[in-house]
Design a protein around this nucleic acid. Structure first.
Lengths: 115, 115
DNA sequence: TCCATAATTCAACAATCCTTGAAATATTGA
DNA sequence: TCAATATTTCAAGGATTGTTGAATTATGGA
């Protein structure tokens, strides 16, 4: 991920509705969620949620696929992982002080950890 | 770090000049850099750099201290670390797929790693 | 084909953000 | 105090972003 990509990602995540969409889709997993369901849960109008979904898609943080009448959105795990990596390595130059809390989280969730 | 704090941080990092300032200050370390020096290196006008430094300060990502005629800015490592943690744990729900690349970076720079 | 459902697109407007240059503030030294 | 340096503040304008509701597109079933 280059700096331009990171800028777009940060911009996409800097809006409350969009950050909530991403958090929701991450929890939803690969099954994803229909646009209408997202709008309902977040209590946002269909046209507004559509606008924000398009922004997230443009930034590459989510992807979509039609399923019957619905359009299912899901989080792009790879892009989110790359963003974390950019923030730690490229932006924060791998400084231990910055990476320490991240390392703690990584230790809990990494497949090679004790779990 | 709560969601509001994260939103402010993402907003602050979503602008090219500001992202460059942060990257520069992280590399500069605790010694920091004077506003004028930052402006010079990034080829941005003094008033413009001042605007962006204020935005980063408001988001808590950098801090300042006067030294003679200069005002020295430095990266807030703790805030950056918390942002990485938020992105991995709160936003990305600790998903291994997302954390994997981060774990790799963490392994290289963490003080408790093999180094 | 016709209707209902699901979502997007569009235009208009409001709100926010960025840039610019001039003026103001703070510090230092003569 | 005066001048020079370093930076910030301010106001104006332009650019971008977010919101709204109406119109449009796409799908599936009677």
């Amino acid at each position: 991920m280059d700096q331009g990509q990171a800028l777009a990602s940060f911009g996409a995540l800097s809006q409350e509705t969009r950050l909530q969409i991403v958090r929701m889709l991450v929890v939803a997993g690969p099954a994803g969620m229909a646009a209408g369901t997202i709008a309902e849960k977040l209590e946002v109008s269909p046209s507004n949620i559509s606008f924000h979904l398009k922004e997230l898609d443009r930034a590459g943080l989510i992807s979509q696929q039609r399923e019957a009448r619905s359009i299912i959105y899901s989080a792009n795990y790879h892009a989110l992982g790359e963003l974390v990596r950019f923030l730690m390595e490229d932006c924060c130059a791998g400084h231990p002080e910055i990476c320490a809390p991240a390392a703690a989280v990584a230790a809990c969730c990494a497949p090679s950890a004790k779990g």
